[in-house]
């Protein structure tokens, strides 16, 4: 019996495409945010309101990832932004290759900011780099304030966290300070925005952050 050292990255195929995407975005001077959350946290609603609030200020394009259907891309187009839908047909996350071909379908030259709405899943997408500029996590208050402690990976890596559906805070047991404290233990530099995509609460700070990020 003998051993052979290999030292090969198992996800190297994904990483190669992620590097290509990152290079493409850098060359075109475009910002790209990879949004990750559980299903139903309100990613699409947040994007639709963000597009409306920033109309005339930031030109936004969206890559939508879902297991099936074109529903989310249609909601984004209805809000007035360009959208490309990716159907993963069962896969739990978007891959860098899928994002690579979606980027080619977006009118990138006419955009300032590209959002990737990942497949609703708080676990798997955080392992698969897409070449994005930064990750943005979304947590909605009905999911519970214990999620950052239970699913630390995405909260440790995100540049920003939107705590959505704060209009429901009185109806659910969600301690916003506990959630914030648990996130800050993992990631002191994260920007936290309590928002409601339904009422628009908190969108001023979130949109200002995006304006700052895009230099607008």
């Amino acid at each position: 019996m003998y051993k052979v050292k290999v030292g090969k990255k198992i996800l190297s195929a994904n990483e190669e495409y992620a590097a290509l995407n990152s290079q493409f975005l850098t060359e075109h001077k475009k910002l790209c945010l990879n949004m990750i959350s559980s299903p139903g946290s309100g990613k699409t609603a947040i994007l639709a309101r963000t597009i409306t609030e920033l109309k005339g200020k930031i030109r936004i394009g969206v890559i939508e990832g879902d297991i099936q259907t074109e529903i989310d891309a249609e909601r984004i187009r209805a809000a007035g932004a360009a959208a490309v839908q990716i159907n993963t047909d069962g896969a739990c996350h978007l891959s860098a290759l899928q994002v690579n071909s979606a980027l080619k379908k977006l009118p990138v030259e006419e955009l300032d900011l590209i959002f990737i709405e990942n497949v609703g899943n708080l676990v798997c997408p955080s392992t698969f780099e897409l070449g994005e500029t930064a990750k943005v996590a979304v947590l909605s208050v009905p999911e519970g304030d214990d999620k950052p402690a239970k699913y630390p990976a995405i909260f440790a890596r995100a540049k920003a966290l939107l705590i959505n559906k704060v209009d429901l805070l009185e109806a659910v047991d969600f301690d916003i300070e506990r959630a914030k404290a648990d996130v800050m233990k993992l990631n002191r530099d994260i920007k936290i925005f309590p928002v409601s995509a339904k009422t628009g609460q908190g969108f001023g700070d979130w949109c200002n952050w995006l304006l700052e990020l895009t230099g607008k």
Partner: peptide, 29 residues
């Protein structure tokens, strides 16, 4: 216990996650 092991500060930054690696293979002789 997310604190510096030296000065106990909680102000730190996480380094990149070690990648998924195929380290070595054992073969029959």
């Amino acid at each position: 216990s997310p604190r510096c092991k030296n000065c106990h500060s909680d102000d730190f930054e996480l380094m990149p996650d070690p990648p998924l690696l195929l380290e070595e293979i054992e073969f029959d002789t």
